[in-house]
């Protein structure tokens, strides 16, 4: 049972890190629906680099670097070119899905390295995730940087007038978000499940995206949601731990996705909608083009 608990925390951590990345971007008004693509890239490159060099550190750095690059690309499409952010995000997802399938295929199979040692019986990344949540909450609500990020996401033209550089802030947020998503992917491929297979994420990035909508852009709620989904995911892989014999294993695999739908549906309650509407960054998904 303890093993199950630890694995659930591992899974939650990956949801948390990726979703925090998405949350930072969204707070600045940049919607990135390509989370899954960036995670796939981070996971695949992290896996390849770690296997080639034998160094976990380099693997994680590679994951973070490709994440930053894709965050930059998304920033370029959505900030500089002022294009449709959904189109760009979908592009990044499909590019990630397509290219990693081809690039990673020769590496199909286990990583073949010693496991990363645990800290106090838990994965070290759990503490990283926890620190990230607290840090993000602190920066967003207590610092001038956080105020800048939020103002750019709420009302970019007002922010610009008050001296905030909209484009720069959005770029930084998008890149930071990308780095975290790439890192989350690397944690998946190097620690949670160190076996490469094509399109192995099977929806983690999209659940992370849903978590951000559900969290009302609050890192603490986001963490709670990640814990719920991490546990659910783990349960869907090992249903025999709780309800042996009930349903086929394939039915269990649909459960996390079904619960996501139910959660999204529950957001339709009036109570939730008013709060959600108030918390939503007003300029989310809208390009900001300076008047010339």
């Amino acid at each position: 049972m303890f093993e199950f608990f630890v694995r659930s925390l591992d899974a939650s951590t990956i949801f948390t890190i990726a979703a925090i990345g998405e949350l930072i971007g969204q707070r600045s008004g940049v919607l990135n629906v390509g989370v899954e693509g960036i995670m796939l890239f981070g996971a695949t490159l992290g896996f390849i680099v770690a296997q080639a060099t034998g160094s976990y550190l380099l693997g994680f750095l590679a994951g973070i670097a490709i994440g930053a690059l894709l965050g930059l690309l998304h920033g370029f499409f959505s900030v500089t070119l002022g294009g449709d952010q959904v189109v760009s995000g979908m592009g990044i997802w499909i590019m990630g899905f397509g290219l990693t399938t081809y690039i990673g295929n020769p590496y199909t199979g286990p990583l073949g390295m010693d496991r990363i040692p645990s800290v106090l019986g838990l994965s070290p990344f759990f503490f990283v995730g926890l620190a990230l949540v607290i840090l993000t909450k602190f920066v967003l609500s207590k610092t001038s940087l956080g105020l800048k990020i939020r103002s750019v996401g709420e009302n970019p033209s007002v922010a610009e007038v008050s001296g905030v550089k909209v484009a720069k802030t959005r770029y930084y947020s998008s890149i930071t978000g990308g780095m975290l998503m790439g890192f989350a992917g690397a944690v998946y491929a190097l620690n949670y499940n160190p076996v490469w297979n094509y399109n192995f994420l099977m929806g983690w990035g999209f659940i992370a995206l849903a978590l951000v909508f559900f969290s009302m852009w609050n890192p603490y709620i986001l963490m709670a949601g990640s814990l719920l989904f991490g546990t659910l995911w783990q349960l869907s892989l090992n249903p025999q731990l709780v309800l042996p014999g009930l349903f086929s294993r394939y039915i269990w695999r649909t459960v996390p996705f079904g619960i996501t739908l139910i959660v999204l549906f529950s957001m339709s309650m009036k109570w939730f909608r008013t709060r959600w509407g108030a918390a939503k960054p007003d300029a989310l998904g809208q390009p900001y083009l300076k008047e010339e």
Binding site: F97, Y102, I103
Partner: peptide, 20 residues
């Protein structure tokens, strides 16, 4: 390598996004 058609999918998609 396996997945040439997948790779094409990826390259096409991102090019399209840029051409928007």
């Amino acid at each position: 390598g396996f997945g040439i058609d997948y790779a094409l999918l990826g390259v096409l998609m991102i090019t399209l996004v840029a051409f928007q």
